[in-house]
Nucleic acid binder design. Structure first.
Lengths: 203, 203
DNA sequence: CCGTGTTCTGCACCAAAGGACAATAGCGGG
DNA sequence: CCCGCTATTGTCCTTTGGTGCAGAACACGG
């Protein structure tokens, strides 16, 4: 398996600024990819969501805030750092509330930029790790049949086999069979593990 | 039991502004309490943390950011709304990252202020509800003896009674006794409930 | 010294969970 | 029509969990 290098995706319609920021980041040892518009980024998204996005607020077509919205909607783990020349406090507050990693102003301070990128990359790594675990668990859960999921909710609720049997109108033996199948498919050894797994899945 | 009315605590060293904001809020139907410094607020804190805090950034003595820090450190459920005349983007970003509810500028827009306060009060209610549940559970957990807590960690880990017995070097019957005591004290009916409870406690 | 709470344990009994082995039945594809 | 998957249920046996009843050791405070 290849380990993809974290990449800083810079999106700005001001090409001279774009190249300046790119030079700065490359000098800092970061892999950089440039886009001259948010639309271009959306149309040609990164193959692996490893890294972060630095985006200008005001751009022709889709603006920075909209790009952030698109990323959020697609549950992308790429943190967004805003970098704009005409930002105001209200806008920065709104962006931060929407989950932006940082909100910087042009001309950008080299230290601040690197700090923001560093934080963003850490956050990205954490997000991806959490997301990966989540997908694994969901994949296991997907293998359950409808009936098994039904039984699982009862088991997680702490109900006894005979109670579950009565609830779903089946024999206790049937519940035991489903139960065993659930534990095997989800690869858990105890009800305690099963409960935690269901919590992780948000059930 | 009395239901305390949500109160908006306004902290600003500019007394004329303080009274103006107070008048505005009172006209909006909010209970208001005024402080002319953050130190005054800290020395004479609200008896019930029901409401929110509106605080100026720049003040003699403790400033707004420090006050936010104090509230966070004491796990206060009172959200903080900054309201300042000399704020910049970097400061607002920092404040939001620290968990501020909003960051407004003077002169304040009446609508924006009311919206912020409303959001803050909702958040406060949710925080208090969550905090109350948390304290109840913690109080129950406190009643457990050291030995019972030890057994509980093993039970929550999904270990069998005989395994637990071996681990803590005791008879299986002893583990059963502790286990029964745990379930009774924490008022749970099943291992599933116990696991969820321990998750809520962050164990 | 005595009472209280904690910890520990034994025996017996019953309820619940789980595994082994097996069988029946419906349903959708190949 | 047969295969595979799902769902269902049965019996038998073992392991595990839970409870009632009871006793003993220890520490701590009144």
């Amino acid at each position: 398996m290849s380990i993809p290098a974290p990449t800083v995706y810079v999106v700005d319609d001001d090409v001279s600024f774009l190249t300046a920021v790119a030079r700065l980041l490359r000098a800092g040892g970061y892999a950089v990819k440039l886009y001259s518009s948010a639309d271009a980024f959306v149309k040609d998204p990164p193959p692996e969501p490893v890294g972060c996005v630095i985006v200008d607020l005001h751009m022709p077509g889709m603006d920075g805030m909209e790009l952030q919205e698109v990323l959020a909607r697609s549950s992308s783990p790429l943190p967004v750092i805003f970098l704009t020349g005409h930002g105001d406090i209200a806008t920065s507050v709104h962006a931060m509330r929407k989950g932006a990693e940082d909100f910087l102003t042009k001309p950008v301070n080299r230290e601040k930029l690197f700090e923001a990128v560093q934080r963003a990359l850490v956050r990205n790594a954490l997000q991806r790790a959490a997301g990966a675990r989540d997908r694994e668990l969901r994949a296991l859960y997907e293998t359950l049949t409808p009936r098994e999921r039904e039984v699982m909710t009862h088991v997680v609720a702490g109900r006894l086999n005979k109670q579950i049997a009565a609830d779903i109108d089946a024999a206790e033996r049937t519940v035991k069979a489903h139960r065993a199948s659930i534990m095997a498919k989800l690869r858990v050894q105890s009800v305690a593990d099963l409960v935690r797994l269901s919590q992780s899945l948000g059930l």
